[in-house]
């Protein structure tokens, strides 16, 4: 038996393991993917432009902000700057998870970083926490179902968006906060978890009320990260695992 015939099925099963992890993400993101397609057309996008935006920017909140500002006839450079501001948190994701990807090839990293959305980052960090390596096949197993459906949803939303009956009664507008809370809870064994969550929550709420959205994300996040850096850590989960 050659090495190749052994590696290929293992890669496939790794990919499928990742794909299974992507399921809750696909469910939680679907209404927003569809909503994006619908709102894009209302704000003067063509169907192609809606699909193109989901396929290239691939970041829900920033896409919504972009649509909104474009629809409000804001200057194009300001629309672009706002998209950048909403997505600035990814710098932190990239620096954090990049430390765990040194066994990837440069090309794998270049591809992998494109798919580094919030749930992708959270899943990858949880995998690190459980003491396992992040394989490229596993990573793409999570990424590709989420990405593919996200792009398809922009298209379907653009075509049939009017058919969503009553988003409020179905709780659709609150799917993501619940999902993100679940992710936050998943990291509760980390050093300084509760203080970091508390400071980030308070800072983001204050920033939301004063500076306004989308800056509350970066401001709240930086407050929590600085606290994590400043306070002497207790025993960290990562050290225990080693």
């Amino acid at each position: 038996m050659t090495a190749d015939s052994y590696v290929a099925p293992r890669r496939w099963s790794e990919f499928m393991l990742g794909a299974r992890r992507s399921l809750p993400v696909v469910v939680a993101a679907a209404p927003f993917g569809l909503l994006f397609g619908t709102l894009a057309l209302e704000n003067g996008f063509s169907t192609f432009e809606a699909i193109f935006m989901s396929a290239t920017i691939y970041a829900g909140a920033s896409q919504m902000v972009g649509l909104d500002l474009f629809g409000a006839k804001v200057a194009p450079w300001l629309v672009v700057l706002s998209i950048f501001a909403v997505n600035f948190r990814h710098v932190l994701y990239s620096a954090t998870i990049g430390r765990q990807l040194s066994h990837w090839t440069p090309l794998q990293r270049a591809v992998g970083f494109f798919f580094l959305v919030d749930p992708q980052f959270a899943e990858a960090e949880q995998r690190v926490e459980s003491g396992r390596r992040i394989g490229f096949a596993w990573y793409m197993g999570i990424a590709l179902p989420i990405y593919t459906l996200w792009v398809v949803e922009a298209w379907v939303g653009a075509l049939f968006g009017r058919l969503i009956p009553d988003p409020h009664a179905l709780g659709i507008d609150f799917l993501l906060p619940i999902y993100f809370l679940g992710l936050v809870m998943g990291f509760r064994k980390r050093a300084m978890w509760l203080p970091v969550v508390g400071v980030s929550a308070v800072a983001s709420v204050i920033a939301y009320k004063t500076v306004g959205s989308p800056w509350h994300v970066s401001i709240g996040a930086l407050a929590g990260v600085f606290l994590g850096a400043l306070l002497p850590p207790g025993k960290s989960v990562r050290e225990e695992a080693q």
Binding site: A122, S200, S204, Y208, S213, G220
Partner: peptide, 20 residues
């Protein structure tokens, strides 16, 4: 240590204003 706080810090900011 700061980077290890990133997941909890960033994801919290996506929940807190909605909760408020």
């Amino acid at each position: 240590a700061g980077l290890n706080a990133v997941p909890a810090a960033v994801l919290t900011t996506l929940v807190a204003p909605a909760a408020m």
